[in-house]
Amino acid sequence: MDDPLVIAGREFGSRLVMGTGGAANLSVLERALVASGTELTTVAMRRLDASGGGVLDLLERLGIAALPNTAGCRTAAEAVLTARLAREALGTEWVKLEVVADDQTLLPDPVELLDAAEKLVDDGFVVLPYTSDDPVLALRLEQLGCAAVMPLGSPIGTGLGIRNPHNIELIVSRASVPVILDAGVGTASDAALAMELGCSAVLLATAVTRAQDPERMAAAMRAGVEAGRLARLAGRIPKRFWAHASSPAVG
């Protein structure tokens, strides 16, 4: 691989992590996942009788790794139990740690999040925490031993993009684990911006699964992530106040 994403020593050729929530059915989801080129995709843990099953078989068939999340958990204790159940059910120590404060904002609860992250790291998990765009909290999560930090661009499902790009840059500038922009992406330019700001990857679901044409939007996100990554590596020109002629001034 040319420029792999490396999380906890594991390499991924794609820098787009997908979620599976919100797709109208498994066939729409399958086409979107294939178009996205993703190699790592989140799933939720729910009671056996709940709807939305069959996703594990789909991911296995497509050769995409499943990343269980702790969505719906409000406390560290709930999140730790959910992560342990996911490890047992899926045979993976990787977990996307989500501990949200309330239904209206779905914003991370930082106190519960830190508590859960510490317990799961101690228990041998590879912890990828969904966090707010707070540079101090991101650093604390890294120091606890999280394998990546996943700050939000804006609240889950809003499609409001990256509301505080400077905070994302601050997080990136001090992180020594991958920074994955998680939540808030609405369209391909948001994904490209995340990568231009220095994120290592982008995680998104709603922007694709609830788009009018999920398959096409998945392809757009893939291209956006790739374009943003290339631009970041290429090094953009500094912004200038006055014009700077691009044609020769003499002759």
Binding site: T42, V43, L48, L85, A89, L90
Partner: peptide, 29 residues
């Protein structure tokens, strides 16, 4: 509220009044 490992499913008795949660992976996130 405690995980029962797969290897212990056959040998773990369910006490009267217990709460059993059976989970699987679904679309989400």
């Amino acid at each position: 509220g405690e995980v029962v490992p797969r290897a212990a499913w056959e040998t773990t008795f369910v006490p009267d009044g217990a709460a059993v949660e059976v989970l699987t992976a679904v679309q989400g996130g």
